[in-house]
């Protein structure tokens, strides 16, 4: 924009989008960032002066001594996000190909999207009905002459619920990539001596990367921050970073600490993405795969 009047010409095109981002992303983020350095007053309102206490407390450097409570919770949440993403890839990757080659792709896509037509809370409660002591799962096991299992409330239930909830977000963008695959590239790879596995790896897999990466982001980020699923399927006994943040803005009324926890979570996720992007950018797509 070195030419005079460049800004004026840019305004009608980029302007509305930029205004939107400033108003609904930048300003709220800055507000939370600011709040994370404030304190809680006797009535649970935000008050000065500015302090680093919230961050100290999160990282366990409180006056009360070294406590890894919140870092443990953060680690637990990242693990949930990681495992959920991996399981979703294992289940969703073949399924995206299955949809793409099926003569009934529209029906299958509808089935993937269908759960969204029901409220999320109701679907979570449905899992409780399945997992609870006298639930559907144990009834089936009983009929098969097997011992009942105690899955509600449990971490297993939380993991199942999280994978169930976010799986479609992996399948849909991946399917969009799989559908556009240029299969002549696979033929070219075979022609050049690549067997079945190398052929897939070198000619097909790279074509699915855009969808796969989009899917990974769409699963990992919300899974790390989830609190409803652990609230319901863990019955409050499974505490994740999302639960911590939600509590601060709810029951505990400590918005300052909640803001700090939210910022740490955001920082960790962004740092991960940045590292990944830098790695991908430096080495180039083809060497990454």
């Amino acid at each position: 924009m070195s030419r005079p009047g460049g800004w004026k010409r840019l305004l009608p095109t980029v302007g509305p989008g930029a205004a939107w981002l400033v108003l609904f992303v930048l300003v709220p983020t800055l507000l939370i960032f600011y709040a994370s350095f404030l304190q809680r007053d006797a009535h649970g309102w935000l008050t000065g002066p500015l302090t680093l206490d919230n961050y100290r407390r999160f990282f366990g450097l409180d006056a009360g001594g070294f406590d890894l409570l919140y870092l443990n919770i953060l680690g637990r949440s990242l693990l949930l996000g990681l495992v959920t993403t991996l399981v979703a890839i294992v289940l969703g990757y073949p399924f995206a190909f299955f949809i793409a080659q099926s003569p009934r792709k529209n029906l299958l896509l509808l089935l993937v999207v269908l759960p969204f037509w029901t409220n999320f809370l109701i679907r979570a409660y449905a899992w409780i009905v399945i997992f609870q002591r006298k639930g559907v799962l144990n009834a089936v096991l009983g009929h098969l002459g097997l011992d009942p299992v105690q899955l509600y409330p449990s971490w297993t239930a939380v993991y199942v619920g999280t994978v169930y909830t976010y799986l479609p977000f992996l399948i849909l963008p991946l399917y969009a990539s799989v559908e556009k695959i240029d299969w002549t590239l696979l033929e070219a790879a075979h022609d050049l001596g690549a067997g079945r596995v190398p052929g897939f790896w070198h000619a097909v897999f790279p074509q699915t990367l855009p969808g796969l990466i989009a899917g990974i982001l769409l699963v990992f980020i919300p899974a790390v921050g989830t609190f409803v699923i652990s609230d319901l399927l863990g019955a409050g006994k499974t505490v994740l970073i999302g639960n911590v943040i939600q509590q601060q803005f709810g029951a505990s009324r400590d918005w300052a600490f909640g803001s700090a926890a939210a910022f740490v979570l955001m920082g960790v996720v962004l740092a991960g993405l940045w590292l990944y992007a830098r790695k991908a950018g430096e080495r180039g797509m083809e060497e990454l795969v």
Binding site: A188, A189, H202, P206
Partner: peptide
């Protein structure tokens, strides 16, 4: 299978691997 035949094909639409450079 194609990958064990003593022939190579030049494809109509070239079918170059888009994520690889010319050398690769």
């Amino acid at each position: 299978p194609p990958y064990r035949r003593p022939v190579n094909l030049v494809f109509q639409n070239y079918a170059l691997f888009p994520h690889m450079n010319v050398y690769d």
